[in-house]
């Protein structure tokens, strides 16, 4: 199918970093089954670095590819870099996504932020709340 780029299909067919991590330092889950996409990100942190990262995704081909690509983009990178990862960067790395699939990349960005937030909370690290998705009060998943 020519709906997706070769890059998307590659990450969809051969997802990187898939599965759960044992004893993660941070876990973030976004989306809901009602709208058809759920992403879950697991993090292992060493010092200031994302030592390991993995994902589990329920969703379409682009959701799985976006999760896979997002984990690749932050693996081994400083936390500061992971915090500033944008959905746009995920889309670019995938050589683009169809218009109605952009929200998949937004979910990937938000899942990573949510996992980092969980890591900060667990370790009592102070952070700026406004930089993180507020899933309880956000209607993204019902209006994308």
């Amino acid at each position: 199918m020519a709906l997706y780029s070769e890059k998307v299909m590659d990450h969809f067919r051969n997802p990187r970093n898939v599965g759960a991590l044992a004893d993660p330092d941070g876990v973030g889950e976004v989306g809901n089954a009602k709208c058809g996409d759920i992403m879950k990100i697991y993090l292992k942190v060493e010092g200031d670095v994302i030592a390991d990262v993995s994902f589990e995704t329920f969703g379409c081909g682009s959701a799985i590819a976006a999760s896979s690509m997002a984990t690749e983009l932050i693996k081994g990178k400083p936390i500061a870099d992971a915090l500033t990862l944008t959905n746009k960067a995920v889309v670019e790395a995938l050589d683009g996504l169809p218009g109605h699939k952009i929200h998949c990349s937004v979910l990937a960005e938000e899942a990573i932020k949510k996992a980092l937030q969980d890591y900060f909370e667990r370790n009592g690290i102070e952070y700026d709340r406004s930089l993180f998705p507020d899933c309880e009060n956000c209607d993204h998943c019902s209006h994308h």
Binding site: M9, F12, G59
Partner: peptide, 14 residues
């Protein structure tokens, strides 16, 4: 249950 149809279609297409 537990999966989404589009990814199922793409992998069957493969």
């Amino acid at each position: 249950e537990g999966i989404e149809g589009e990814s199922l279609l793409l992998l069957l297409d493969d």
